[in-house]
Design a protein around this nucleic acid. Structure first.
Length: 599
DNA sequence: ATAGGGTTAG
């Protein structure tokens, strides 16, 4: 009897294990688990490990845990498989407590490289560099920190936690044989994710010269293309597009999306369109990225046409797609179309509006000056937490633009209730007071910010000349070779000509500001030089041949004063300017802008 | 049996 049973188990086990590997649903894993128990083979540690892994693969971590808890003996695989299951199921903290538990258990199992890379990736999910550093230290002590998998996971973890230098330190510490395609790709994506495009481009160049014979794969290429999108460096982006082509990756869906996105963020919607038109079966994400591109360029009608084309082709939109279309409406003044979409998205496409859709709609009404409706919607919308903060901040900006101090105070009140570091909103509030002549109140906002130690991200603009980016900060004409004196002289001349056309502001360095977005340093009164985009434009006018379009990138939203100034200057010097700000593109030509002042 | 990288938004 015993002999029969063990023979059965021996012949049956490999078959059942194979069944487990292929199983993707809980029912079949549980059924196979039952058969293994019946055959008597389930008691072996390795069989149990297979079952744990299978349960985890279909998300049944509770079943995996029950089995794990009942095991008389566990090895490192049992622990690691369960850890990985928790992490994948979105419970990274539970995964990390297993790491602590495994060393405390009697006859404890020491972690191996698999365990550490799993633990590190759990920290990455939490985007917690503090926890990550602790695990890193333990891996270092146990001698696993330079394992290629552990080190690559560490690069990713530091990057996701926003610490690109930490990631780079690990990467630099890796021995050359350990540095493989994945680790290069991870490092590149860290730069892309942290908006360090210049560093990514530099690292990619290093890869091309150093790793002889290794071709870039689609992971690396999409990261580099993304990084180019982030800094708007068309020159490099085109170059990488060439590389994509040479290595035969132009058909990869993810890269195509990255290219569409890159060209649109560099201000070349036509190129985006060309890449998009070559995609045979565009996915939702492809459609979404081209719709978002059209939105950024204020091409609301094109966005709507693309949306209906996609619906006709049977491609199901998702929440982001609808948001993109609404954004396009918002940037083109198609307010009622956008509102209709908000109200019909649930019934037509089965997508319930979430916080971002409400924020977009409120913003859209606000831009159009329909502030009372905007307030009504903002009060009705079921939005909480950080999302609500964004919603009320955008409404506050709209109140400031339309010079409705009464409503601005109400929105400002809601914003301040969150009691968070909302530098942007506070500056807008202060500007609203200044515009209304209430300089005391404006100054009070500033001193309150100073007391609480709130600082705003400094505004900067940059311009690419012969593949070299020149970066400008407000009030500082500093980039090497930027010819500060000449720029200021040119701006003075321009200002004089603008005055003839009725301009009342000031461009020059003696300008006393109405507490602007970028002058975070000084207190009341606020004496600052010039906004960074004006400096970049001045420099561009000096060095770029007349008749060529000047392209300026900016890390914040353009303010209305600079927007007015750019319009006027485009008429005076008879040149075209393209400004990419945080949200969208502005194409200035003959005294007006493509955004028709919707932005 | 357990481990590492890329896509759409603001």
């Amino acid at each position: 009897m015993a002999a029969t049973s063990s023979t059965t188990a021996a012949t049956l086990t490999p078959l059942l294990i194979r069944l487990l590997r292929g199983a993707s649903d809980l029912a079949s894993v549980a059924a196979t688990h039952a058969k293994l128990l019946k055959s008597g083979a389930a008691s072996a540690v390795s069989s149990s490990n297979h079952i744990i892994a299978a349960y985890c693969r279909c998300g049944a971590t509770a079943c995996a845990r029950d089995l794990f808890d009942g095991m008389p003996d566990r090895d490192v695989v049992s622990w690691t498989a369960l850890m990985s299951g928790y992490s994948a199921a979105g419970r990274p903290r539970a995964a990390l407590s297993l790491l602590r538990a495994m060393s405390r258990t009697r006859g404890g199992v020491p972690p191996n490289a698999f365990t550490f890379s799993t633990a590190v990736s759990a920290c990455a999910r939490l985007a917690d560099a503090g926890l990550g550093r602790q695990v890193h230290a333990r891996a270092e002590v146990e001698g696993y920190a330079r394992d290629e998998f552990v080190a690559t996971a560490l690069v990713d973890m530091y990057g996701k936690a926003g610490c690109a230098e930490g990631a780079r330190a690990v990467f630099d510490d890796m021995a050359d044989p350990a540095r493989n395609a994945v680790s290069w790709g991870s490092m590149l994506s860290v730069y892309a994710q942290n908006a360090l495009g210049h560093e990514a481009v530099q690292l990619f160049a290093e890869f091309r010269t150093r790793s002889d014979g290794m071709s870039p794969n689609h992971f690396m290429l999409s990261s580099v293309v993304n990084a180019c999108a982030g800094v708007g460096r068309l020159g490099v982006g085109k170059c990488v597009h060439g590389t994509v082509f040479r290595f035969g990756h132009e058909c990869n869906g993810v890269i195509a999306v990255a290219l569409v996105d890159m060209y649109s963020k560099c201000g070349f919607y036509e190129y985006s369109r060309k890449v998009f038109d070559r995609i045979e079966q565009p996915s939702v994400i492809c459609y979404t990225s081209i719709i978002v591109a059209a939105a950024k360029y204020g091409l609301g009608r094109s966005a709507l046409a693309l949306f209906s084309e996609m619906i006709d082709r049977g491609v199901q939109p998702n929440s982001v797609t609808v948001l993109g279309v609404m954004n396009a409406c918002s940037h083109s003044g198609l307010v009622d179309t956008g509102l209709h979409l908000l109200h019909s998205m649930q019934s037509k496409y089965g997508i319930g509006p979430c916080a971002s859709h409400y924020t977009c709609a409120v913003d859209m009404l606000g831009r159009a000056g329909r502030l009372d409706e905007a307030f009504e919607l903002a009060n009705e919308a079921q939005v909480e937490g950080r999302d609500a903060l964004m919603l009320w901040s955008s409404l506050l900006s709209a109140c400031r633009i339309h010079r409705r101090l009464d409503l601005a105070t109400r929105a400002g009140q809601r914003v301040s209730e969150f009691n968070q570091d909302v530098a942007g909103a506070l500056v807008v509030m202060s500007n609203a007071y200044t515009s209304a002549g209430q300089t005391d109140n404006a100054a009070a906002v500033w001193s309150n910010m100073r007391q609480r130690g709130i600082r705003k991200e400094p505004g900067c603009s940059w311009i690419e000349i012969k593949d070299i980016p020149y970066v400008f900060y407000a009030g500082l004409v500093s980039p090497a070779g930027a010819r500060a004196g000449e720029v200021m002289m040119l701006l003075d001349e321009l200002e004089a000509k603008m005055r003839e056309k009725g301009y009342k502001g000031k461009l020059g360095s003696t300008r006393v500001f109405d507490a602007h977005e970028e002058d975070g340093e000084e207190g009341k009164g606020v004496m600052v030089g010039v906004h960074s985009e004006i400096l970049a434009l001045g420099f561009g006018l000096l060095v770029i041949p007349k008749g060529m379009t000047i392209r300026v990138m900016k890390n914040l939203r353009m303010c209305c004063d600079c927007h007015d100034a750019f319009k006027l200057i485009s008429g005076i010097v008879e040149s075209e300017f393209v400004v990419r700000d945080l949200n969208r593109f502005h194409h200035f030509k003959m005294g007006s802008c493509s955004c028709n002042d919707y932005w």
